[in-house]
Design a protein around this nucleic acid. Structure first.
Lengths: 325, 325
DNA sequence: GGTATGGGGGGATACGTTTCTTCGTAAAGC
DNA sequence: GCTTTACGAAGAAACGTATCCCCCCATACC
């Protein structure tokens, strides 16, 4: 059931059918309508594969991230990533594309088996080999998070330093004197977040109090949270999702009340509605990354466009955990 | 940079290159290695589009669900659906497929532009037109949730009646006498869930106490929860995600303590770690749906297989909200 | 009468694979 | 010496679309 059959049934040529169905060429409306009617009657559906082969466009965008184990999602930032993917999917669909989530590497060669018009790489490693491979194939790449030295067509990212400063300022204003930081050393933006914290401390002339842990190691978060509280801060800031839960548990264990004895704030999408949290707005990041990517794809050839960059704003939700009664 | 160039560079025929790269045909290892070496040196990558056109297989699975507005996810069951998608994606990748999430309908004809080897339809409507269209195209369909009268190749579903009974038994055992039910009337399995509840009540000879609301309407959940508590139950069961939060809020508003004055349990993925909840195990549902679908795809032609069905078990996590001190 | 003009439509090719079929040659079996 | 067998490899036909380019026929214009 190809375009040929439609052409035969309608008594016209293949060219005419293609033009009629795609609104191209110069055809009288009568012909156009006739062809469409015949195509409908036959239940004809054009082959996506053939169209892709011919035009070189598949309408498919890839989305990937560095991942632990075979899971396609980074567990450290599950809520953040899930929301980013949801938003990216919706935006892609709005623009006429479909989005497929792929692992950075897999036993089967999935990357080789799917034709991609472009790809979003979330948190690429430095000089990401996957990105280089994609660019070599001519697949445009936009990154989520600063791409480092990896050359890409564009990227979206939060201003991590400003974000950290925002939270710290808020804690200070709420009366905190000794602010501790808990971070997952392998979390996204960890380096910049910690650096921003140290810079802020240096500005104020206060000593930094930080503990880090590997998110992959079970129990490491709990232990680090406990170590942090050992150092007797009057406020704590969790740089990554999950930090809040660990800190709350550790505080409860030593009978510290939040916010009375300890102020608590964290980055992340705030599953706990009582904890002050700084949203990184993953929905915006996902949507903008897709918009950037589609822009690159559709403007291909329109001059040597510099890598476009967009900074995703953060949003601080002040809640009970930093509101002294 | 096609297979032709590789053939020319290696001094062999196209057939030989194809066979060498795909491990088919009868070729001495020397030839195979030589061809592969040349292909590598040239940086040759086979065209997924051409392969798809020729073989009729794209390695792509679709996943869709009935949705409100243009969002590709049903918001009522966000955590449930997100986890199902995550698990389905991972399983598909393990089996060598990629998964693309599509809306049931969209302004752009995305369904027509992507070649799918099969599709999972989550919570299809009765006699789903999308499913019929897919089947007409020859795309195998597996459904998540009972397909009703829609003909599909297989489905996965929870045993909603048993699930409800399980929770009610638990509440009764925990000392509940008057158990109220809160349900989103447009939630998945709502009909069966409520029916199961009524049946359970009938068995015991106790009057059912139910309130329903439309999840789409803002504030409806809060109002329904309040109405339910007006009827003075000593335990409440929220059939859908979000019910727990509404019920907790309503209980707090009238100074009922949980679990002392009111036992609380709900279905859902339990974002609140203090609420007893019955997980529908969306990860299992997603994985099994993919396995079923891939089975259908790869056994195509191996006899007229009856629709395969798998029942996803539920798991009750008993927590503080139903544990009397 | 000859030639622009423009609407309407068809032929043929290319996109890059996979695979069916065929072909030659050399060793082995009778 | 002649037929089987097996091996190694190539030719060529699809798969279904989009599109470049050309052709034909009126009408209109000089």
């Amino acid at each position: 059931m190809g375009i040929r059959d439609v052409a035969a049934a309608a008594g016209v040529s293949i060219t005419t059918v293609s033009d009629a169905l795609n609104g191209k060429g110069r055809l009288p409306d009568t012909t156009r309508l006739h062809v469409r009617e015949v195509a409908d009657r036959l239940g004809y559906r054009p082959s996506a594969a053939a169209r892709t082969l011919r035009t070189g466009r598949s309408g498919l965008l890839g989305l990937t991230t560095t991942m632990r184990s075979t899971e396609p999602f980074a567990l450290t930032e599950f809520a953040w990533f899930a929301e980013l993917v949801r938003s990216a999917t919706a935006t892609a669909l709005d623009l006429g594309y479909a989005l497929v989530v792929l692992p950075a590497s897999s036993p089967h060669d999935v990357w080789g088996n799917v034709a991609l018009d472009g790809t979003i790489v979330v948190d690429p490693v430095d000089d990401d080999p996957l990105v280089h491979e994609l660019l070599r194939r001519g697949v445009p790449v936009v990154s989520g998070g600063h791409p480092g030295s990896t050359p890409v067509y564009g990227w979206v990212d939060n201003d991590h330093v400003a974000a950290v400063r925002c939270v710290l300022d808020h804690l200070a204003q709420a009366g905190a004197g000794r602010i501790g930081l808990l971070a997952a050393s392998d979390g996204p933006g960890a380096g910049k977040g910690v650096a921003g914290y140290r810079a802020w401390c240096a500005d104020r002339g206060v000593p930094p109090i930080t503990e880090e842990y590997e998110a992959r190691t079970p129990g490491a978060g709990r232990a680090a949270a406990s170590r942090l509280l050992d150092r007797e801060p009057d406020a704590v800031f969790g740089l990554h999702e999950g930090c809040a839960a660990e800190l709350l548990a550790a505080a409860r264990a030593r009978e510290l009340r939040v916010p009375d004895d300890l102020l608590l704030a964290c980055c992340g999408e705030g599953t706990d509605p009582s904890v002050t949290s700084l949203s990184l707005q993953p929905a915006l990041a996902g949507a903008w990354a897709v918009e950037l990517l589609v822009g690159v794809i559709e403007d291909a050839g329109a001059g040597p466009l510099l890598p476009a960059q967009r900074t995703v704003p953060t949003r601080l939700s002040v809640r009970d955990s930093t509101t002294r009664r």
